[in-house]
Structures are given as C-alpha cells and as structure tokens.
Simulated assay, not measured.
Amino acid sequence: MTSTSPAPTLERLGEGATVELLGVVKEYSGVRALDELSLTIRPGEFVALLGPSGCGKTTALRALAGLEQITAGAIRIDGVDVAGVPVNRRDIGMVFQQYSLFPHLTVQQNVEFGLQMRRVSASDRATRAREALEMVSLDHLSERYAHQMSGGQQQRVALARALVTRPRVLLLDEPLSALDAKVRVSLREEIRRIQTELGITTVFVTHDQEEALAVADRVAVMRSGGIEQIGTPEELYLTPATPFVADFVGVSNRMRGSLVSGVVTVRGSRLPSIDPALPNGEVLAFVRPEDIVFVPASSTAPGDFSGTVASTSFLGSLRRTTVRLDDDTIVSVQHSVEERFEFGDAVTLRLTGRPVASSPVEG
C-alpha cells in the first residue's frame, strides 16, 4: 500500500532502542566465533566494538543485523527477541566498510531505494531523501553517480541511505577503514554529530582504537568471542581491567617489576597496582609513555634511571622518543615538542607514579 501522508522530517528519533545480546553463541564447524557474549546497550547510546582481527566483533554485528543465525542465546531490541526475525523486519540501518552503492542509480535514487522497498510514495521518498542528504551535507550532489564521487562522499551517501528509513538501531561495520586519515577523522566526527542529534542507538565496529575512543560513549574490547572489558574511553585507558586491555588500548611500555601487597616496584619507583587481586611476585608492568618523564641531570632523585636515545618522532602536538635502558629494555616517552633529543643522547628518566596494570611473569 502506497503512503499518501505528509513526509515527516528526520528529527530526533526519541530515546532510541535498548539492544541486548544475552549469552550469544555462534559456532562455525564447532569453533566458537562468539562465546556466550552478553552486552546491553542503552537507548541512544553509541557503543564501539573494538578488538583485533578474529575476535568476533563483526560476527556480533552481523548477528544483531540478522545476517548470521546464532547458535544459542538471545538478541533483543526493546525487549523483543529478534533472533528468528528476518533482516528486513528488524528495523535496523547498516553501513558497511564497502559503500555498496548501486552504480546505475543517482545519489538521490540510492538513498530512496530503501523507502521504495517499503512502498513509500514517490513524493515522500524524494522529500525524505533530500532531508537525509542535507544531514550529511550532500544535497547539492543528489544527481551524481557513485563513480563521480570521492570515497568519503560515497560513505556519506551510504550513511544517508541507512538513516532515511528511520531505523531503531544503526550498525556501522568498519565504515571508515577504506578512507584516508584526514577524511576518516572528519567523517567519524560527522557520524557522531548525526548520531547525537538523532538519538539513535548505534553500534560501531572497528579495529582502530583511536576511532573507538574518539566517538563512543562506551567501548567493548573483545577477545576470542567475548568481551574482555566494557567502559568509557577514559575507564579503559586509565583503569584497564586486564593486561590484554592495557596492551591493546593505547600504547604501553612493558617493564619488569615486583608486586607486593598491591604495590608494583619498577626500577625503584613504587606504583599502585590497578588490580588489587593480583598475587605477589614478579610482574610485567604496563607503563604509559606519558607516565615517564625526562629529568635534568641536576635534578636526579632516588628511583630515576638512565638510558640512551634510540629514536625520536615529531607528532605535531607532541613528541615520542624511544630510549634504550642499561639492560637493553626499550621504552617510549611521550613529551612536549619543546624537549628535543638526538640519537645517542644520554638521558635520565623518572616514572610519574600513576597506577599501572600488570601481569605475572611466567616461569
């Protein structure tokens, strides 16, 4: 049946939907890609699934979309189990890594396509497509074809096409990985702006930690089909729950130390342990580059240690310098651009004393 009612605008979509994955299992030939994965996403929340290749993040997204049938568990949207519901009835918008635009259709026609499948009237389709294209700043290119547009523009079209149907949930499967660095940063900020304005519940899959930390309300770090830790970007970076998270999120130096009663001693400095349950013994401490500072030779103190500059890199707003210590350990130091060092310079370092994650040294 063709709709003849006035076309509503792409206004804020209320509070968004609640998404729940409850004990989800997905097996391929007896191998678990998802191992009793449980995750609750609040209405209007932007959650990133972050992890290395093969951790299950894309499988989780495809299961939520209905593109993969789960082996066990439940998937609920606003309390309704959708595990057996076909893709086209889940009311989900999805943007893939590949733009998947129809080459024989114009931008306007590509965006209208989902509405056409829903038998929305031609006038309503045109109005809603224009509104979606305005949202992604492409209304002036509505008559172009895909081959006439840049990669970033094509991905904006894909985003408009996903949003024009007003889905309850938006799924983004590594949508920025094919773009160059500058376009990637610009588009991720635009995605976040649009998501916030619409209030749509969003799941974003990426292997790029910077992307995840920059845009998400919460980040779920995945490993071997499960969630290693979920929290705000600040929580994951400052208080990683496991050595895997500490090592995967951000940059960390691995420095040998000893743990006694919740305090890790590394090169004479006493650092609070993030994990109070870790048993006493020899450990590898994960020390962030910004938690090591250079000390003038005239200001040395007990616990300072020396090394030789191995390399230094200018990163725009900061520098990162690697130092070889006396036992051949290599550490990375993040510091201001005003501090400049050359290869072979003798330097003195100091730990700032911030809490650290650590893992037992085996053997």
Rank of each mutant, 00 (worst) to 15 (best):
A246W: 10
V245L: 06
D247Q: 15
P243S: 11
N253Q: 12
V221H: 12
Q209H: 11
V245R: 07
R267C: 00
T232P: 01
E211G: 14
A214C: 10
A241F: 08
L259T: 02
G257H: 04
E234G: 03
L236V: 09
N253M: 10
G226W: 07
N253V: 09
G250Q: 14
V221P: 12
L259D: 03
T242K: 03
D217Y: 08
E234M: 06
R254W: 09
G262T: 06
S261V: 04
D217F: 03
A214T: 14
I230L: 11
G225E: 11
V251I: 05
G231S: 01
I230N: 12
V263L: 03
G250R: 14
E228V: 01
A216E: 06
V251P: 00
E234W: 01
S252W: 08
A220C: 14
L259R: 02
R254L: 11
T265S: 11
G225Q: 12
V219Q: 11
E211P: 12
M255K: 03
T242Y: 03
G226Y: 11
R267P: 02
G225T: 10
E211L: 13
A214Q: 06
R218Q: 13
S258I: 07
E234R: 07
V251G: 01
G231T: 00
V263G: 01
L259V: 04
E211D: 12
V260K: 15
V266Q: 02
V251W: 00
E210V: 15
N253Y: 08
A216N: 09
E210S: 12
V260E: 15
V263M: 05
S261M: 09
I230G: 13
D247L: 10
I227L: 07
R256K: 10
G250T: 14
V266W: 02
V264Y: 01
L213I: 09
T239P: 00
